[in-house]
Design a protein around this nucleic acid. Sequence first.
DNA 1: TGACATACATAGGACATCTAGGTATACTAT
DNA 2: ATAGTATACCTAGATGTCCTATGTATGTCA
Lengths: 106, 106
Amino acid sequence: MAKKEMGSTSMLVLALLKEKEMYGYQIIEELDRRSEHVFQMKEGTLYPVLHGLEKDRLIAAREAETVKGRVRRYYAVTEKGLRVLEEKKKEWNTFSKAVTAILAGA
Amino acid sequence: MAKKEMGSTSMLVLALLKEKEMYGYQIIEELDRRSEHVFQMKEGTLYPVLHGLEKDRLIAAREAETVKGRVRRYYAVTEKGLRVLEEKKKEWNTFSKAVTAILAGA
DNA sequence: TGACATACATAGGACATCTAGGTATACTAT
DNA sequence: ATAGTATACCTAGATGTCCTATGTATGTCA
């Protein structure tokens, strides 16, 4: 309706990864914690999103092993990802202000 | 991700109709105007939404003829529609606050 | 041993929205 | 007159986002 009606998931993921690199499961936990349980992202949502962002070179992966042999894929934002994040933040601000304007009358 | 990732379209339509009854084409114009051209809803989006809201009894239609014989379908919010609007507004506030919280770190 | 948390992944479906068309009347400029 | 634009409604089919459901595998705790 606006540009693409806000695929907010990827924006949120990029925002988290801007702070520090994280692995998938951790992203889900952080989103839940920081949003005070509003965002309970499903694994079936997140992992395909991560794969898409990686394919578009907005994030980059690195594999790391824990002490006990478990493998994790850590993701970090790329330069391109940071630029896209800035765009998405602007779009979000525009979008949410417009919604607020409409709701003000109701 | 939250409940249903905000079907914001129907919320906006209900919000407009709370003020006064409107016909489809008018809703598109009002959304464009009040959002300062952020929401340029397509007819292919709006009309199915209106039919869905009517089917769910959140809005009710009345047909009216203009002086020159053109027929318009005017929609008004029902009591049920007002209740749903209140819910959706609450969800929107929760959602947008959570997004803001995540973006604050970036 | 069985339940639960961690950590990754994919297939199939639901749902919202868009693109792209169609119908019909009224107004405006050529 | 007629072509183009605005008004006003509508639907079919495609796309994209997200969810449900499921699978694999390891670690921890009762």
